Simulated assay, not measured.
Amino acid sequence: MILTVIEHAPSVPTDRFVPWLLEDPVPTTGPTLQLRIVRAWAGEPVPSASECGAGLLVLGGEQDAYDDEGSPWLPATRALLAEAAGSGLPTLGICLGAQLLAVATGGRVQVAAPPGCEAGVVAIRPRPAAADDAVLGALAAGVPADHPGAAGVLAWMPSMHSDAVVELPPGAVWLASSTLYPFQAFRTGSAWGVQFHPEVSLETFTAWAEEEDGVDTTDVVAQYREREAEIEHGGRAIAMAFASLVRSGSLAPTPA
């Protein structure tokens, strides 16, 4: 079974998701999951949803969700995400991938959003809908949902972004928030978007911090090291839940 991965920059790879996506908690004699990396930044063509195999993963990147001139593959990526979300293809967008998903399905992203850069390890808090969600439900189990007066932590996750989803797509399900940015996770049709980075390793995260103006690399690295076990637990849970959806076959087509 093929899971297609769209890569927007060599500095933002599939990283720790590779072994987690391929790890089957219940080994069978059936087909195994294989990753097909599409290096869009290198000119490799963005496929259609029907060419993606059993699932689609769209990674983050250095550009913004509207940077069609600087990243000419973005219109095709947005079209792919809109098609995938409405066709039942299990799909996950991370950071830029989530922003592209939001724009592709009728939401809005603000470039250089006023709250500023969210950099470091962030407490991700579940919304009520997360408890029954196929990707976040296992992490949300038993965690108080985010509402006035009470909120638990779904996961501690690395984050490094200044752009943000400011309007969810019509009909999207809001799944998680953070203190600085509310739309940390959502679902639209058969696609999920997460603003944080469940896939990133310390090495990659350190490199991002070193390149980001105004970010204290020493502090960011210290946050990651302090929460490393929790970051791995959350990242693995998300990757394996998504991989399970991919292995189970197409979801019911839903207009996105």
Rank of each mutant, 00 (worst) to 15 (best):
D15F: 07
R16G: 01
F17E: 01
V18H: 06
P19S: 07
E23N: 14
E23R: 12
D24F: 03
P25Q: 08
P25I: 01
P31S: 06
L35Y: 05
L35H: 06
I37K: 06
I37H: 13
R39L: 11
A42G: 10
P47G: 10
A49L: 09
G55T: 04
L56P: 02
L57P: 01
E62D: 14
D64R: 02
D67I: 00
D68E: 13
E69W: 09
W73F: 15
L74V: 00
A76W: 01
T77A: 14
S87I: 00
L89W: 04
P90G: 08
L92N: 03
L100M: 14
V103T: 11
A104G: 13
P115N: 09
C117K: 11
V122D: 01
R127V: 01
R127I: 00
D133V: 00
L136D: 02
G137T: 05
A138W: 05
P144Q: 07
H147K: 09
G149K: 06
A151V: 08
V153I: 15
W156I: 00
P158E: 01
H161C: 09
V165G: 02
P169G: 09
V173D: 07
W174A: 13
L175N: 04
S178T: 11
T188S: 15
W192M: 09
V194A: 04
P198N: 08
S201L: 06
A207D: 15
A209K: 03
D213V: 00
G214S: 10
D216P: 09
T218K: 13
V221P: 08
E226Q: 14
E226F: 12
E230I: 03
H233Q: 13
R236D: 09
A237F: 05
A241D: 12
A243M: 09
S244Q: 15
S244T: 14
G249Q: 11
G249M: 12
T254L: 14
